[in-house]
Computed example of a mutant assay.
Amino acid sequence: MTWDTFHRRGEVLRAVVDATEARRDGVLPMEMPGVAETFGDELTLIGALQLRWHTRLAGSIERELMDQPMDLESAVMAAWRRTATEMTGVRRILDAYADAPTSEQMARTLTKAHRKDWALMASMAGKASPSDRAAADVGRSIEERARAAYRPVAVGRHRADDAEKASLLHRIKAHLAA
């Protein structure tokens, strides 16, 4: 991959992420300019979005652990919710394709990626080592609890219906993030 190709791929992926955040419909935007030429197929684009999600989740976990180092599991769940709020469109796509993969290879790929997310969450919560066979199950349980307490708040967007539901603290955070 040349330097120009690498940068073009990054630009297209950023545009895809921005589009998914604007649309939030769970549909992979293969029709966007440059997507087919850069990624080729749905599986490659899903893989890039999953990697973007995983990287953001890992960074969010690190930040949360700095803020609440005594309650690791709560910090990991808060990080998952923060990442889901920041990447709502991407999360909806990943969930939609995990629920209804378009191929057996996509199903395997997403299962493997989710297991890596879950192992990360379990290890960062202090519940398992990343190489522990049970880590993915423990992490999945942590994600399920994070999802159960998840209340999406628009970040960087000022939508009346979300703003009315959000607490003052969430509205201040959203404003600062914008």
Rank of each mutant, 00 (worst) to 15 (best):
A113V: 07
P29C: 10
E21Y: 05
K112V: 06
S60F: 02
W53G: 01
V35S: 01
A113C: 08
M106T: 14
P101I: 15
A163C: 14
L94I: 15
A75G: 13
M77Y: 06
T88N: 09
V138Y: 12
L120I: 07
M66Q: 14
M124E: 14
E144S: 07
D67Y: 03
I93R: 00
A75I: 12
R133L: 14
S60C: 09
P29T: 05
L45M: 06
T109C: 08
W53E: 00
A22I: 13
A48M: 08
Q68M: 12
D18W: 06
A19K: 01
L72N: 12
L51V: 05
A125H: 12
R24G: 02
E62D: 13
A75P: 07
R56N: 03
A128F: 09
G59R: 09
A154W: 11
A136D: 05
T88P: 04
R145Q: 15
I93Q: 00
S123M: 08
D25N: 15
E144F: 01
R145V: 06
L65Q: 08
A128E: 15
H114F: 01
V27K: 08
H54P: 01
P33T: 02
L110P: 06
S123W: 07
S60E: 09
M87G: 00
M87N: 06
D132M: 10
V35K: 00
E42T: 05
E62C: 06
T55A: 04
S60I: 06
R63E: 13
A122W: 10
D117M: 05
E64K: 05
P33A: 10
D67F: 03
L94D: 02
G89N: 06
S60V: 07
A128C: 11
Q50H: 06
E144D: 11
P29V: 02
H114G: 03
I61A: 10
T83Q: 04
G26C: 10
V155P: 04
Q68T: 15
G26I: 01
R23I: 01
R63A: 13
Q68D: 15
H54D: 05
L51R: 11
R52M: 07
E62G: 10
A100I: 15
A84W: 03
A136R: 01
R92M: 13
I93Y: 00
L65S: 04
H114W: 03
E144H: 06
A149Q: 15
I46Q: 08
T102D: 11
D18H: 14
K116H: 02
A96H: 12
A125K: 14
T83E: 02
A125V: 12
R157W: 07
P152R: 13
V27Y: 00
G26Y: 01
T38F: 00
E143M: 06
R52T: 07
